[in-house]
Nucleic acid binder design. Sequence first.
DNA 1: ACATTGACCGGTT
DNA 2: AAACCGGCCAATG
Length: 106
Amino acid sequence: MRFDGVAFAREVKDIVTRIPKGKVLSYGDVAWLAGAPNHARQVGKVLAMIGKDSETPCHRVVNASGRCAPHWPAQHQLLHSEGVRFLSSGAVNMALCRWHPEDDLI
DNA sequence: ACATTGACCGGTT
DNA sequence: AAACCGGCCAATG
C-alpha cells in the first residue's frame, strides 16, 4: 500500500487541531495517531507546509525530547504563555504536558 | 536508479 | 550534558 501524502496531511491537521491548550504532542505521537508509525519526519514536513500562521496550532508539536523546532525559537514563548511547564534544560516537561487523547473521554 | 535532505527517534558513548 | 550513530521514510535533485 503506497503512502498517501494527502490523506496523511489531512490526518495530521485534524490531530494537531485537537490538541488542548497547555498540552503538547511529539512528531512521533502525531504520526502514530495518524496511523503511520515511523513517519515522524513526514509530520514535520506537513507542519512546515501548513505554516505557523494557519488555524492549526503547530506550536503544540515538539520533538520527543521536548525541544522546540530548531528554526522557530518563538515557539517556546507561545507554549509558555499557554501554561506549558518547562524543565531547567529549556525543554517541555513531557511527563506533565504530553497530551493523552483518551484522557478527554473520562 | 542513486544520493542527499530533513520541524525525527532511541540508544550508546 | 553533549556528541555520535544507526534507523527511519517521503521528497527532491
